[in-house]
Design a protein around this nucleic acid. Structure first.
Lengths: 127, 127
DNA sequence: ACAAAAAACCGATTGCTGGTCGGTTTTTGC
DNA sequence: GCAAAAACCGACCAGCAATCGGTTTTTTGT
């Protein structure tokens, strides 16, 4: 799956706002970036069809919510973009992790290791 | 940057073969997938323009080599696809690492941690 | 209930990129 | 020099994001 710029911005807004309708997003964007309300609506619709958003009619307009959280979407995008470049085991993917962590500081590396430990513990309890 | 299917296959072939010209790649692909020699040539050219390949004329034809190794390209693709989804710190990216590592086994997690340690050591020597 | 306003929906256009080749020019090797 | 091989040019199609005008449907205020 591929996401365009506007799609990413809309997702970002929904992640921080929790939920919003087209008009609200359009208003939030009108300072700086301007796309017509229709464009926002099309983008919301595309994201909805991609099953990245859910929506419910509250009062007058559809209110959209994200259906995946940021980390899972990022992971999904990484999977899809690298699927044909990664061999049988995940050697390359792990190496890419390290390559990516080039611009992580010591403290961030610490946190990353802590997360790995935590993840390892969790998966041990849930086999 | 976005890579298509054929582009990825060509890169894979070059990573394992070391180097090859269009004809060789075409021959290697003709079992299974078939694209005309011209198509392979166009793809090589596009990858060359993207600076992912270098080439040198050896004898009769251009011989192509990769200019990046697999891990760095994967890292670059991850960066480009997630750039607008990741905030100032790399919290989300690290969380995505963990999310991705869901299907890594204990031993793979071990190796990942070892790689991180190694990377940390190296960056300490080279500030 | 009805008209006006708002929202949703439809469809068309543009731009970009990858895949696909045919055909022409250039290079190369005898 | 000439034939074969390789490189290059240009064109076309497909898929997808961005864009928005215009039409239909829904909601709302009186």
């Amino acid at each position: 799956m591929i996401l365009g710029e506007l799609e990413k911005q809309v997702l970002n807004h929904l992640w921080s706002a929790g939920e919003a309708d087209a008009k609200q997003i359009h208003a939030a964007f009108s300072a700086g970036r301007s796309s017509s309300l229709n464009t926002i609506q099309s983008t919301l619709d595309r994201l909805y069809k991609k099953q990245l958003l859910s929506r419910s009619k509250q009062g007058h307009a559809f209110v959209y919510h994200t259906r995946v959280d940021r980390e899972d979407l990022i992971a999904q995008l990484i999977r899809s973009i690298t699927s044909d470049l990664v061999s049988q085991d995940n050697q390359s993917l792990m190496a890419a992790f390290v390559s990516l962590s080039a611009d992580l500081g010591d403290d961030e590396l610490d946190r990353l290791e802590a997360m790995i430990q935590n993840h390892r513990r969790k998966s041990k309890l849930q086999p």
